[in-house]
């Protein structure tokens, strides 16, 4: 009977470890914390083409993740994609002329938004719109451009 307490303690630790593992899977591995973590300020940007960008795609500066894409919409007046992002309030000193580009991580990797800070003194705040944007690289366009420039080079030398 004296080891009953030990058994109970170990079972307690086991159950706690199991739930901790589930919690870690939920918070660290999956996107669950993206839903709960709605704090931060929202900024938006318009792009010609967002490529494979999705909701919850990361937003980063110099490779550091500072926020997430929270919604993607199509503006029927400007015929542009409007991407709304939530930025961690820690990063509240981004200049207003920061530019946003859509990059691909690796050749086949996921797409994300990269910020390039500018030089303005004023900082981005809730509801601001980033005007300097660069759209996603679409593979067909890149190849098309490459072939086109090769062709024009060839015709010049002739």
């Amino acid at each position: 009977m004296q080891n009953t307490r030990l058994v109970e303690t170990l079972v307690g630790i086991f159950v706690a470890a199991g739930f901790a593992a589930l919690f870690m899977l939920a918070m660290k591995v999956s996107n669950l914390n993206a839903f709960s973590n709605v704090e931060g300020y929202e900024v938006s940007a318009k792009f010609d083409n967002i490529g494979g960008l999705k909701e919850l795609s990361p937003v980063s500066v110099s490779g550091v993740r500072i926020g997430r894409v929270t919604s993607i919409a199509f503006d029927q007046e400007s015929y542009l994609a409007v991407v709304t992002m939530t930025i961690d309030p820690k990063y509240n000193r981004l200049p207003t002329d920061t530019s946003a580009s859509i990059f691909t991580s690796g050749l086949l990797g996921e797409q994300y938004i990269g910020f390039e800070p500018g030089g303005e003194e004023a900082f981005l705040k809730e509801g601001d719109i980033i005007s300097l944007t660069q759209s996603a690289m679409v593979m067909e366009q890149i190849i098309g451009q490459f072939l086109f420039s090769k062709a024009s080079e060839g015709s010049k030398t002739e």
């Binding site: 589930l22 899977l25 939920a26 660290k28 591995v29 999956s30 996107n31 669950l32 914390n33 993206a34 999705k54 919850l56 795609s57 990361p58 980063s60 490779g63 550091v64 993740r65 997430r68 991580s105 990797g109 996921e110």
Partner: peptide, 17 residues
């Protein structure tokens, strides 16, 4: 950063976990 952020953006709580 990429290891965790990509994981988080692609693993869905309801669907996967």
């Amino acid at each position: 950063g990429a290891f965790w952020s990509q994981m988080q953006s692609r693993v869905d709580f309801d669907e996967d976990i």
